[in-house]
Design a protein around this nucleic acid. Structure first.
Lengths: 218, 218
DNA sequence: CGAACAGTTGAAGACGATCAATCTGAGTGG
DNA sequence: CCACTCAGATTGATCGTCTTCAACTGTTCG
């Protein structure tokens, strides 16, 4: 594997140059570092200890997104608020970097890397949502969420007619959601019985967006 | 929600400055853009069309990681090879950017953003693996994968004694894996019966790493 | 027209969730 | 030092959901 064309990414990712912009802070065991929903003013780099990153869902359930260890990073902002909460599992030392410092650095450089960074951070958020969906929702809900995503983001839904044109076959959808093709078919049956969708042919569905949104809420 | 402290990330993420470095290319429907495992020389930004990103697993199964649409990005390299394969679902126009161009730009700027970018790209890869695990593996396999991760990456496994010290309670593990606490307990039973692990007390396990690695392979 | 593939439907079984009961172990106060 | 307590962890029994395998339907294209 040649190492020339992507060395910009393959160097030691120790985050030293970022950590040096912040200050070292300590937390005892079982302490909240930041709350879900609060303003994301700091980015943290773990020095020592183990941290739990978790998400509190509407229904009271909890999902643990990650366990962080030395060299890991959390609090990279995208929307301005923390999407998850962070809590120590052991006495922990962190480097705390003010996000405004990054802002300042960004203007010194070109937009290229910050654009790329934004895209990757967005993708992490999307994958987190998907992870929760995969782990916690039943099949009809998963399918509804997928259809809603198609309607809202893929430009294959006609608002006038209410018709969604599926750009991919059943097998791709099933492999995306992580279910069997047959389960997908049955979930579409369920949604049809609930008058959420109406099958025109296998690539065209009539959608009641309001009901779909309800069906896509766990 | 104030917009000052993170505007470096909140500007329109259209990737225009990156796309401008590449050239426009077209693919017909149902065409492979890149194969899983091949050298990652280009980064792609979707102009028009829908692309399927999928992963082929060892056992012949397939998992669809994502469907990409206008403005989405794929092929951001981390390890030097593509981890997934990309295939068009419709006629597609893309911007194809040589990774070496990014390399060149990186050296012009500080290391800060490329370090951050590497971290986020790594996190995306880890989340992808976790997504596959969550969707496709049975509970004992999931638990084995988790324990192996702890042994290899969290510094809580003593090679001499073969004892793993769990840094978190059962509830955290279960919420991380996405299973019930009781299922976790039963999975540990199964692994014990297979002589993969041996319970000392609820925070300490004797581990047979070789067998654990086997149990963690789907 | 019929072959080949995509999608749907049916029946059986496996797996994990849930609820309830029990066990363990660390911390507390007598 | 020993009961007592309470949360965490395990075990048992039951039930529902999703997978699997199989048969069938429908659609596209030579």
């Amino acid at each position: 594997m040649e190492n020339t064309s992507y060395s910009y990414l393959s160097r030691e990712g120790n985050l030293a140059s970022i950590a040096s912009l912040g200050r070292s802070v300590f937390f005892p065991s079982n302490t909240t570092i930041f709350e879900q929903g609060s303003a994301a003013k700091y980015l943290y780099i773990v020095g020592e200890g183990v941290i739990r990153i978790s998400r509190h869902l509407q229904d009271g359930q909890r999902y643990v997104m990650a366990f962080l260890k030395k060299g890991d990073i959390c609090g990279v902002p995208e929307t301005g608020t923390y999407l998850n909460c962070a809590c120590t599992l052991s006495p922990t030392q962190l480097f705390k970097v003010n996000v405004s410092v990054l802002e300042k650095r960004s203007s010194d450089h070109g937009e290229l890397f910050s654009e790329l960074l934004l895209k990757t951070v967005t993708q992490i958020r999307i994958q987190q949502d998907r992870l929760i969906m995969t782990a916690r929702c039943d099949v009809p809900t998963k399918v509804a969420m997928f259809l809603l995503d198609l309607c809202e983001n893929f430009g294959c839904f006609c608002e006038k007619t209410g018709i969604l044109t599926l750009p991919m076959p059943r097998s791709d959808i099933a492999d995306y959601i992580g279910i069997a093709i047959e389960s997908l078919s049955r979930a579409l049956q369920v949604l049809t019985k609930q008058n959420v969708i109406n099958r025109i042919d296998c690539r065209h569905l009539n959608i009641d967006v309001g009901r779909l949104r309800a069906a896509a809420t766990p």
